[in-house]
Design a protein around this nucleic acid. Sequence first.
DNA 1: CTGAAAGCGCTTACAG
DNA 2: CTGAAAGCGCTTACAG
Lengths: 354, 354
Amino acid sequence: MASSRTRPNMSLIAARLDVSVATVSNALAGKGRVSPDLAARIRAMANDLCYVPGMAGRALRTGRSYVLGLVLPDIANPLFPQIAQAIESSAAEAGYGVLIADSRNNVSTQTEVIGRLLERGVDGVVIVLRRGTRVADVGTPVAVIDSPSTPGNTVSADHWQGGQLVMDHLIGLGHRKILIIGNNPDSIVQNDRIGGMKSRLSNGAESEVIWVEKVEARHGPGCPLGLADYYRAGFTACSAVSDLTALRALTEILGAGISVPENMSVTGFDDLVWSPVVRPSLTTVRMDMATIARIAVEALTLAIERRAAGDDLPKGPVKAPPHHKESVPMSLVIRQSSARAMTTQRTNNGGYSK
Amino acid sequence: MASSRTRPNMSLIAARLDVSVATVSNALAGKGRVSPDLAARIRAMANDLCYVPGMAGRALRTGRSYVLGLVLPDIANPLFPQIAQAIESSAAEAGYGVLIADSRNNVSTQTEVIGRLLERGVDGVVIVLRRGTRVADVGTPVAVIDSPSTPGNTVSADHWQGGQLVMDHLIGLGHRKILIIGNNPDSIVQNDRIGGMKSRLSNGAESEVIWVEKVEARHGPGCPLGLADYYRAGFTACSAVSDLTALRALTEILGAGISVPENMSVTGFDDLVWSPVVRPSLTTVRMDMATIARIAVEALTLAIERRAAGDDLPKGPVKAPPHHKESVPMSLVIRQSSARAMTTQRTNNGGYSK
DNA sequence: CTGAAAGCGCTTACAG
DNA sequence: CTGAAAGCGCTTACAG
């Protein structure tokens, strides 16, 4: 009677079929050491009993939990959904679950949450870094997602190339005075993107960079960025390092009565969820998160296998350099759209003309 | 030599101190069955050896993993960061880890991912529901976060009261013709919010409801909502059921040369990450996610304790009804701001006046 | 206050 | 092809 309350295990299956648990284990694992028809009967019985393998036992025995930790600097970051979804999906495909942890942009918290993940027995950790922090060596395989300019092993989008993409687009549309809007001058990612943009100025095009945090430090949080002044000074495009910044620019420009894209083009970065929703929808650059996640998870599972196989101590001469970098191209997303060619006569009053 | 490669366990501590593992276990668990100084020596040794308890062993023995599953309908949903952060934080406080899963807005996928979570041995599951789906009975405690109008046990924000809050605000500012913008007419949450809004129309105020999905079904995705027409028809405020919809309205209105909030007020819902970033920043309504998460996690841990204690079968007469509902008040976030009083003379050209 | 022993569910050599 | 046995790291009655 009470047996219906408790989850079935291998012993139950074995008892019902009068075989040994070892055979059940082998049959269910598909190791092929079991005769086909016995294996079939075992699988059928497992199915009848709604058997689900107990991971705790397996983990204890094999020393592997098939769980990965995902450490994020700030879960509230708008890019997080893309990252989490991609990692979860890649991990699930590789047979791993994903335990999340929020390091709250804080190095000591980061150490602490990694500790908690290790307690929980994760086999490896994916860490998303911010603002040039480094991660101390933990006793488990680690994959880092950040900028390629970050020291150490990393997988990341090619932010520099993404910057080139967007600048090529703007130059191709005929823009020659382009305002680059950054947010935080300390961000490696943002500097990479801006570096890429600047590297593609051509045909006499010029740019100027402003940083939101610097402007706010002077005039207070949420202050205008003075974009109407740049418009009057002849700038015809704003290239922001993120969609968040682009959105701020877009609303400020529209609010000043300057039409987009007729009089001013605006581009962003990251293709955040609302980018297609605003009017005009935002031309932006997208990271291939699915690929980045796949590479990170593959690297991790490979390291986990190696470690499980005991390839720990690199005896003899040290082999290849320990730094491994991989960067994934970004792609331009051209929408309805917020950036357009300089073919229309530029109006000089900045007003919205019917 | 090789011992430095392997994680220390209780046996190692016991051997080093020449005591039994049972005593180590008791000392580390703080059960008080161990003399204070022995307990101190054991803790010191554990510390020296960098001992971290192996959860796999504990899980196997106690039948509890101290891991909760978090099932989301769509990780890419912009509300997800708030939810995930709150759940992770509450769970961590209660000593639980959080395994994420994405049901991709799909009932069969939802069943499948819940199955995978159970395989991994989660002690309970938090499910965020969408669009009136129900969740089948799984063999583990479940907490559902959704609308209070959803059948079954739920914790949620009081969306109806949130709607009242925003309408009270607009009426108080003097608005009398208010456009309510919904997205999906099938959403229980959105209908609750709109119901609350309508319930507070007073002083001869009137409203009209439009649904983005319906407009798009007629004119194609991304089409204008015709808000300038509503402005010309005398509407002075748009109350959207989400910040995403509010953002779309805001950019359309600004793009039409109608100034916000001088000529048209706009409000949203959810206080998404970019709401303070746009200009003018968005007046919105916020759910108290921290409280909702705390209630959900508490309910779950309580149910887990009960089940562990064996209070399974409710013998004798059935007690209180199985449906438990809890709804948490929302709060108005008034910003710089996108909604303002009807004190200024209304201009009739809809133009932006310097 | 401390220890010997059993057992949670699984996998893996090893024998037959 | 199949089974008996050991053991992963822990906790929990039970005895002393």
